[in-house]
Simulated assay, not measured.
Amino acid sequence: MKKKKALPSLLYLVFIVLLPWGASFSVNKCLELWIKNWWNTRQSETLLTDIQEKRILERFIELEELSLLDEMIKEKPKTHVQKPPIGIHKEIIQLVV
Rank of each mutant, 00 (worst) to 15 (best):
residue 3 K to N: 13
residue 7 L to P: 01
residue 8 P to S: 03
residue 11 L to F: 02
residue 11 L to Y: 00
residue 13 L to V: 03
residue 15 F to P: 08
residue 16 I to T: 15
residue 17 V to I: 11
residue 18 L to A: 09
residue 19 L to T: 09
residue 19 L to N: 15
residue 19 L to D: 10
residue 21 W to L: 11
residue 22 G to R: 08
residue 23 A to V: 15
residue 23 A to R: 04
residue 23 A to I: 08
residue 25 F to H: 09
residue 26 S to Y: 15
residue 26 S to E: 12
residue 29 K to V: 05
residue 29 K to D: 03
residue 30 C to H: 14
residue 30 C to D: 15
residue 31 L to S: 14
residue 34 W to N: 14
residue 39 W to F: 09
residue 40 N to I: 07
residue 43 Q to S: 10
residue 44 S to I: 05
residue 44 S to F: 12
residue 45 E to D: 13
residue 45 E to Q: 13
residue 47 L to K: 09
residue 50 D to Y: 02
residue 51 I to M: 01
residue 52 Q to P: 00
residue 53 E to R: 07
residue 53 E to G: 01
residue 53 E to V: 08
residue 53 E to N: 07
residue 54 K to W: 03
residue 54 K to M: 01
residue 55 R to A: 10
residue 56 I to A: 08
residue 56 I to F: 00
residue 58 E to Y: 07
residue 58 E to F: 06
residue 59 R to V: 02
residue 59 R to Y: 01
residue 60 F to T: 11
residue 62 E to P: 01
residue 62 E to D: 08
residue 63 L to V: 01
residue 64 E to P: 00
residue 67 S to L: 09
residue 68 L to W: 15
residue 69 L to I: 09
residue 72 M to S: 08
residue 73 I to K: 04
residue 73 I to G: 03
residue 74 K to D: 04
residue 76 K to W: 04
residue 77 P to V: 00
residue 79 T to D: 14
residue 80 H to M: 12
residue 80 H to W: 13
residue 80 H to N: 11
residue 81 V to T: 02
residue 81 V to H: 03
residue 82 Q to I: 13
residue 84 P to A: 11
residue 85 P to M: 00
residue 85 P to S: 02
residue 87 G to W: 03
residue 87 G to Q: 05
residue 88 I to E: 07
residue 88 I to W: 10
residue 89 H to E: 13
residue 90 K to V: 03
residue 90 K to M: 06
residue 91 E to V: 04
residue 91 E to Y: 10
residue 91 E to G: 04
residue 91 E to S: 13
residue 93 I to Y: 03
residue 93 I to A: 15
residue 95 L to R: 05
residue 96 V to M: 11
residue 97 V to R: 15
residue 97 V to Y: 12
